[in-house]
Amino acid sequence: MSLPKLLKTFQVERKKTGLNGKGARAATWMAVGTLRGVLADASPHDRLQWKQMQHPVTHQIVQPGAPQTKQGDRLLYNGRKFYVQGVENPGELNAWTIIMCEEREDA
């Protein structure tokens, strides 16, 4: 199977806080772009390592190129929501980006 067939397109959303009509703080998600990457379950080792850092992960997304998202963003794919827990740029070469995320249905 070739890489283009494995790549999925994710909508990138960033949380924006402001005031609602009643003057209370409110958070909304705003679309900031898209990224293409390969979605996979996180390994048991990665799950344990990230859990120890208080950042539970369930999946990882490997994206070709430089990082296009950051911790705290939300990625949407086919009705699924992935919350970015960390972004790794191996070797700082911008060749590949590993996005560690947690899939949630509650928000």
Score class of each variant (00 low, 15 high):
A42D: 01
L39I: 04
H55T: 08
V84A: 07
L48I: 09
E13C: 04
V32K: 04
E105V: 14
G37C: 08
Y77M: 07
G86C: 03
M100I: 00
A66C: 10
A107W: 10
R25D: 08
T34D: 04
L76R: 09
R25A: 12
A95T: 14
V62R: 15
G18K: 05
P56K: 05
I98N: 01
F10Y: 04
K8V: 07
G18Y: 05
P67V: 01
A31W: 00
L3C: 09
V38C: 04
R74W: 03
P56F: 09
N20E: 08
M53V: 04
P64D: 07
R104F: 00
Q60T: 09
Q60R: 15
A26Y: 06
R80K: 12
V12D: 03
D106K: 07
E88A: 11
G72D: 03
L7I: 02
C101T: 08
D73A: 11
V57I: 14
L75Y: 06
T28Q: 11
H45M: 09
K22S: 13
L3F: 10
M100E: 04
R14E: 11
A95M: 09
L35Y: 01
N89A: 03
K22G: 03
E88I: 09
Q60V: 15
P90A: 06
H55C: 10
T97L: 10
M1W: 10
A26S: 12
T97M: 07
L7D: 01
Y77T: 00
A66D: 10
P4Q: 07
G18N: 07
D73K: 09
G18E: 05
Q85A: 05
A24L: 09
Q71Y: 03
T97F: 09
Q63G: 02
D41G: 10
N94S: 14
E102K: 12
R25K: 13
G23D: 04
K22R: 11
L75I: 11
L6M: 14
G33C: 04
Q49M: 12
Y77S: 04
P67D: 06
N78R: 12
R25L: 11
T34K: 07
L76T: 04
K70Q: 15
Y83D: 02
Q54E: 11
Y77I: 00
V84Y: 06
L76W: 06
N20S: 10
A42G: 00
T9H: 09
L35Q: 01
D73G: 10
A40Q: 15
E88S: 14
W29N: 06
K16A: 11
K51M: 10
H55L: 13
S43Q: 08
